[in-house]
Design a binder for these strands. Structure first.
Length: 198
DNA sequence: GAGTAGATCGGCT
DNA sequence: GCCGATCTACTCG
């Protein structure tokens, strides 16, 4: 069951970041189906949050995707080599997004191993924002495409009980001043595919 | 296990 | 010109 448009239109991006835990991210490329359960996310609010590329509601070539209606993929390139995948949320003109930081592999493990050039199934396969995009074959080519289509989408999974949902500050956003202290990272307790503890 | 350097390039000032 | 929503390989111990 693919998530529908209305899921992505919630105006509180932290709600969506929380609710994405336990859902399943799926890609289909060249008939290779790969998927994983979302176990770690971070919320970014472009209007108020200095950690967001779109702060403060700044439209540029890179950020324009985030200003569109919720339900699209926002993918950007960093450190000269990594592609990071985000879910665009909220209404048109509100540049909010959720970074997907880790998934737990489910389908297509064979393809994921091949894309990652490794032969184990542990957090090094799909834990970490750049690792999961590589494992699922996501690149900037997918920037701006719909999450309701047939190349990349998110499905219903399970609803984690609230005592398993952990909250912390976000990773790698020290440049954001006091906004670096916001508790906008969510992850599943003791899940071995989460990128780092806390 | 912890700590650190190096890779590598698009976006923005 | 600087630096990044990161990862890997390598060191030391």
């Amino acid at each position: 069951m693919k998530l529908t448009k209305d899921f992505y239109l919630d105006q509180d991006v932290t709600n969506i970041a929380k609710h994405l835990l336990g859902k399943v991210l799926v890609t289909r490329l060249d008939d290779k189906l790969t998927s994983g359960i979302i176990v770690e996310t971070e919320a970014y609010c472009g209007r108020t949050d200095r950690a967001s590329h779109a702060f403060p509601n700044k439209v540029t070539g890179r950020t324009q995707t985030m200003f569109k209606e919720g339900g699209l993929a926002y993918i950007y390139f960093v450190y000269g080599m990594h592609h990071l995948f985000n879910v665009v949320t909220n209404l048109v003109g509100q540049p909010d997004a959720v970074l997907i930081r880790s998934v737990e592999p489910t389908q297509g493990v064979k393809w994921m191993k091949k894309r990652r050039r490794m032969d184990r199934v542990d957090r090094f396969l799909t834990g970490g924002p750049a690792r999961l995009t590589q494992a699922l074959g996501i690149s900037v080519n997918f920037n701006g495409i719909s999450l309701l289509g047939d190349q990349i989408w998110i499905e219903e999974g399970y609803q984690p009980s609230s005592n398993l949902i952990m909250v912390s500050t976000r990773v790698g956003v020290d440049y954001a001043g006091t906004d670096a202290q916001l508790p906008w990272r969510y992850f599943l307790k003791e899940n071995p595919f989460v990128s780092k503890g806390l």
